[in-house]
Design a protein around this nucleic acid. Structure first.
Length: 423
RNA sequence: GUGGGUGUAGCUCAAUUGGCAGAGCACCGCACUGUGGAUGCGGUGGUUGCGGGUUCAAGUCCCGUCACCCACCCCA
């Protein structure tokens, strides 16, 4: 490819078709957010490097972030995630905000990764958080929002599931196995990789972490125990609340879900396609220490993030891509040179009545103009030729049915509005 | 960062042991000078990613390089 038109690696062009899908996803995210009473906000795309340095996973900051020095010599990061910005915004106005906060956002993020299926360097993410409530019911509301979103985009409970676990529960259980607190991080990582390593490699990694055979078997037993949640009062209350939301079919306990980011403190969750063929659709959980970590007073918080890339792939795989006809509904042809300006005036007249109208701007063959309109996905094509002008009428062709009639110009806008409203 | 795969027309791909670079789709034109989709006929389109090497001869073999894809790591 010639160098000038080569895009930056890992970026994605959104041609109108793809943009229509992204906008559609955004509208679904907004609908669910607003249905649960959440308010939209946005943080900056640029943050100081230090904001992430100690808060996120070290790999995310040190290896996967775009970092540069600005002209003033300050170390700037292109945001790889939103949660630290959110914590900063909350800490900044800590005393002025009306808790609990229910906030959501949708915007671009950047991570310097090797692009692959479902993974790009520039992507969009829906973030939704409930801040200032430490109850299991708050976590359950998050799970319910997640489930409602999946349902809203057409994914069934048989196709996608929200998997839930609780880090404190796991810590208690690990402690009962005699595993030390200093080993938790390593063991969590081991749990996270259970499905990716062979049994032998998994055991080997466990030994390297300093676990003995009994402890390894104990961890393995934990991961197979789907009733483990009953040992946690928090989890019990959580699942009762999920049930009250009426989304139990989408939400289930999964002891191997642990999350990679360091700031999660309690309940954590991920959504997956049930076949496990794709990456996680989204991930999130409780992060009660984060606002404190960026310099505010402690505030409990829970939330999750959904990327636009994986969800799009999954919708496609399951045949749930919406039928997005982005075309302009009305196309006005230009019959010939003399009729070009009168046709443009006709289009303007219809626009003034609130219709969406595109004009053909050259007196090309009508065949060419009709074909262009058809490819645009136009519903009605209008012709203002000599015959029509004589009678003060406009020919209206319905491309869907193929029917055409000549209608009085007066009342045309109203007629088109009614026909389009029906469809 | 590690490992593997693939680069041929706008797209998807073909090309026998190394032997004339092709097809389908798309695009343009005509049939159809007041009308889209369908059909038929015709046409445009190539530095075979790039650079070097071997050979009478390279899309094909060798070396290098770049790009993309897939997996690992990590994660949305």
């Amino acid at each position: 490819m010639p160098s000038l038109i080569r895009p930056v690696r890992g970026t994605q062009d959104y041609y109108p078709e793809e943009m229509a899908l992204r906008t559609w996803l955004y509208s679904k995210m907004r609908a669910v957010s607003e249905a649960f009473g959440y308010q939209e906000y946005e943080g900056p795309m640029l943050e100081r490097y230090e904001l992430y340095a100690a808060k996120s996973g070290s790999e995310l900051v040190e290896k996967q972030s775009y970092v540069f020095e600005d002209r003033g010599g300050e170390k700037i990061t292109l945001r790889p995630e939103l949660t630290p910005s959110l914590a900063r915004m909350v800490a900044t106005r800590q005393r002025q905000l009306n808790y609990p906060l229910r906030w959501w956002s949708f915007g671009p993020f950047w991570r310097y990764e090797k692009p692959q299926k479902g993974r790009t360097r520039e992507f969009f993410q829906w973030n939704i958080d409930l801040i200032g409530d430490d109850s299991p019911e708050a976590d359950a509301e998050m799970a319910a929002i997640a489930a409602t979103f999946l349902k809203g985009v057409g994914l069934k409970a048989s196709e996608t599931q929200v998997l839930v676990n609780n880090r404190q529960l796991m810590q208690t259980e690990l402690q009962a196995l005699g595993i030390k607190q200093s080993q938790f991080k390593g063991v969590f990582n081991l749990i996270d990789r259970r499905d990716k390593l062979s049994a032998n490699d998994w055991q080997q990694s466990g030994k390297e972490l300093g676990l003995d055979a009994t402890q390894l078997m104990g961890v393995q037993a934990l991961l197979e125990n789907n009733d483990l949640w009953k040992a946690s009062e928090t989890m019990q209350l959580f699942f009762k609340a999920v049930d009250a939301h009426g989304v139990s079919d989408y939400v289930r306990f999964a002891p191997h879900v642990i999350r990679g980011l360091d700031y999660y403190t309690g309940t954590v969750f991920e959504a997956w396609d049930t076949a496990g063929e794709f990456r996680a659709i989204f991930g999130g959980g409780r992060y009660d220490d984060l606002v404190n970590a960026v310099g505010g007073d402690p505030v409990p918080a829970t939330g999750f993030a959904v990327g636009n890339v994986v969800i799009s792939l999954i919708l496609q795989a399951f045949g749930h891509l919406p039928d997005l006809k982005g075309g302009v509904p009305i196309y006005v042809t230009a019959f010939d040179k003399d009729r070009l300006l009168p046709s443009i005036s006709l289009a303007a007249e219809l626009r003034a009545a609130g219709l969406k109208v595109a004009s053909h701007l050259a007196a090309d063959k009508l065949q060419k103009q009709f074909r262009h309109a058809d490819r645009l996905g136009a519903r009605f094509v209008l012709v203002l030729g000599p015959d029509e002008i004589k009678k003060d009428e406009v020919s209206v062709k319905d491309l869907a049915s193929g029917e055409q009639q000549s209608l009085p110009r007066q009342g045309l806008a109203k007629y088109l509005q009614e026909r389009l409203a029906k469809a």
